[in-house]
């Protein structure tokens, strides 16, 4: 019993076998290509329909390409994968399961709304750390048109965006996690609790998710004994400008000052891009930022520790029409550069 490895720190998970991210991929749509994160993407697709007849099919193309590029970047074949965890925003996560039908890997579909990218990574990292898989892949996608018609209104409808509206990110991001030594290590994960603060307006997803993000971050810092400045970068998924300002406020009230290391990927994604409201949202928002900006900055040794907190608004078009409030969830993973792996 003396050799039992400590895998739980407080309520958070610690990965003592240091599962590594050996490759990432980021396939982004045209609007995302206009934003400041574009230089970190593997590929910007100019036609958001990807030449397909429906946006749902186009989203699958994004996910499929993300998988192919990630495997290519890792120098692996689809048969090498011991597990693939995927998720998206569409009903019954059809993007994930239909795409998985083309990939010969054991598959688990997950749904955490826009928090799915980190949820998937946490699951894959746990499996790799525990020895259930040597190589695993986590992939998520979202598509503006597909999400818009499922959650909101027809694309061509004349409607004015509210001051808190967000814009669904089109794209897909994948990460390959391996038990072997890689450039970036997944060190801890803090799994989110679902928190419902009674926000009912689907145009206010940032305010609906901010309490969950505050709770997860607070617990992460308490569990690990760290403070925000331990990290070179703390990134939330898609709180947008409004939600991230609320998050700072909530944490400050609990004595945690996020400071300059904190940014929101939703706010970053469309910085300076007109017609996108207070920022991006969707599964691909955190996925593109994590696989692009963060992973590549870590490869370049520009940052050595990062905390990614992907946030999800757990609503459906039925629940908000029935007057229910919007529960939020946020999952966090801590990443660090493998010592001595700098390029």
């Amino acid at each position: 019993m003396a050799d039992v490895v400590q895998r739980r720190v407080g309520g958070s998970l610690r990965f003592p076998n240091r599962p590594s991210i050996i490759a990432s991929s980021t396939i982004a749509g045209p609007m995302e290509g206009k934003g400041p994160l574009a230089r970190w993407f593997d590929c910007v697709v100019e036609d958001d329909m990807f030449g397909e007849r429906t946006p749902e099919k186009a989203e699958r193309r994004f996910m499929r390409d993300a998988i192919d590029v990630a495997l290519k970047n890792a120098g692996l074949e689809p048969d090498d994968l011991h597990i693939m965890v995927a998720g998206d925003l569409l009903n019954q996560t059809v993007t994930a399961s239909f795409t998985a039908a083309e990939v010969p890997a054991p598959f688990m579909g997950v749904y955490g709304a826009c928090s799915t990218s980190v949820e998937g990574l946490a699951i894959v990292a746990s499996m790799v750390d525990a020895g259930f898989a040597d190589v695993g892949l986590s992939v998520t996608s979202s598509h503006y048109q597909a999400a818009e018609r499922q959650f909101r209104y027809p694309i061509e409808l004349n409607i004015q965006r509210k001051s808190t509206s967000q814009y669904t990110v089109t794209g897909a991001g994948a990460l390959v996690v391996s038990s072997g030594r890689g450039p970036v290590v997944v060190t801890e994960a803090t799994i989110g609790k679902v928190i419902d603060m009674g926000i009912k307006d689907p145009n206010q997803m940032g305010p609906a998710m901010a309490p969950a993000a505050a709770d997860t971050l607070y617990r992460h810092f308490v569990d690990t004994g760290r403070t925000p400045d331990y990290y070179d970068m703390i990134i939330t998924g898609d709180l947008g400008a409004v939600g991230s300002s609320i998050l700072r406020d909530l944490l400050q009230r609990r004595g945690v000052v996020l400071g300059d290391v904190y940014r929101d990927s939703g706010a970053l994604m469309f910085e300076g891009v007109p017609g996108t409201g207070v920022g991006g949202s969707g599964c691909a928002c955190a996925a593109l930022t994590m696989g692009g900006l963060i992973y590549k900055k870590m490869l370049a040794n520009e940052i050595s520790r990062a905390l990614v907190v992907a946030t999800g608004a757990l609503l459906s078009s039925l629940t908000w029409q029935q007057g229910e409030s919007i529960p939020g969830v946020a999952h966090a993973v801590a990443l660090e550069v493998q010592p001595g792996a700098a390029t």
């Binding site: 808190t164 603060m197 009674g198 305010p207 309490p211 409004v242 207070v278």
Partner: peptide, 20 residues
């Protein structure tokens, strides 16, 4: 979270929401 906590949070949140 009870109604009081929710109301308190919504007051905090609405201060961050830009006016149309």
């Amino acid at each position: 979270h009870n109604a009081n906590e929710q109301a308190k949070y919504q007051r905090i949140a609405s201060a961050h929401v830009p006016k149309p």
